[in-house]
């Protein structure tokens, strides 16, 4: 365990210093996340002009969903994009062999190898918006604890789905674009699920569990959903994570029997 933590520290300090070579990126990332946030807030403001309630959500509550979305995007930019989109390169260049010959869990290696500082603006804005909503809505301080846990579970869901999609490249190197599909679905997580027509809601809850990424965490923070929803979210997160590990093992079995 300490070995994994020490490895993680070195992974992150190395990739951080590599990314810092390109300082202009930081400005770009900040501008992009400001624009995204302003656009999202403007849309919510449009929804709520002339009314106080949309499908049972007040404007500040809807803003909380957007805060969670922004935070998740930030974490994805920092951790998921720089790692999972590179799996295809490991396969293409054959350097996955080196990863497999390291005495460390290969899924861990591929998922944590890089850390990009460019997710930081979104993480900070997300945390800011969530804090603003919690204070504005007069929620008890325990809401912060619930928020941390709920967002962590949401993150596990996003990670597991993303990792499984990214590892399809073991079979079909050309389908690395498939993760963009997931990203576009995630965009739907900007707004509360009740903002969507019923049919979409079903898809976004049961087919691609976008609801569990932002809406359910928000409901948990707001106290709109109780302990049973917590249990469901936790089961989904843990279940998907386990499936992602089994999936990776299955993919590797294929890789190691088919590659020459």
């Amino acid at each position: 365990m300490t070995r994994y933590l020490r490895t993680l520290r070195r992974f992150w300090s190395a990739s951080f210093s590599a990314e810092m070579e390109y300082r202009a990126n930081f400005v770009v990332a900040t501008v992009v996340s400001v624009l995204n946030l302003v656009g999202g807030v403007f849309t919510i403001w449009l929804f709520f002009t002339g009314r106080d309630d949309l499908g049972g959500w007040s404007m500040t509550q809807a803003l909380l969903v957007m805060g969670i979305f922004t935070l998740l995007s930030g974490v994805s930019d920092a951790l998921l994009v720089p790692n999972l989109s590179r799996i295809v390169h490991f396969v293409q260049q054959g350097t996955l062999d080196y990863v497999l010959l390291k005495p460390i869990d290969s899924q861990y290696y591929l998922s944590t190898r890089n850390l990009s500082p460019w997710g930081l603006p979104n993480i900070l804005f997300g945390l800011g918006v969530i804090s603003y909503c919690v204070v504005k809505l007069d929620l008890p301080p325990s809401a912060f604890g619930i928020a941390a846990l709920a967002v962590a579970l949401a993150m596990a869901v996003v990670y597991s789905l993303w990792f499984m999609l990214a590892s399809i490249t073991i079979w079909f190197v050309k389908v690395y674009n498939v993760t963009h599909v997931l990203q576009s679905f995630m965009e739907a997580g900007k707004y509360p699920m009740s903002a969507f027509p019923h049919a979409y809601r079903v898809v976004l809850t049961f087919v691609i569990p976008v609801a569990f990424m932002t809406t359910v965490p928000a409901q948990l923070i707001l106290g709109k959903a109780g302990g049973d929803w917590f249990a469901i979210a936790a089961m989904l997160a843990v279940g998907l994570f386990i499936v992602s590990r089994l999936w990776w093992r299955f993919a590797l079995r294929f890789y190691t029997s088919a590659s020459s």
């Binding site: 520290r9 190395a14 590599a18 350097t95 080196y98």
Partner: peptide
């Protein structure tokens, strides 16, 4: 250990010493 002449494990953008630190941890 496996060394393949046509594939590299060192990180391209960083000094080799960084890769060595990572390997030491692993």
């Amino acid at each position: 250990t496996l060394v393949m002449g046509q594939k590299q494990q060192l990180l391209w953008d960083l000094p080799a010493s960084e890769s060595l630190r990572i390997n030491a941890a692993i």
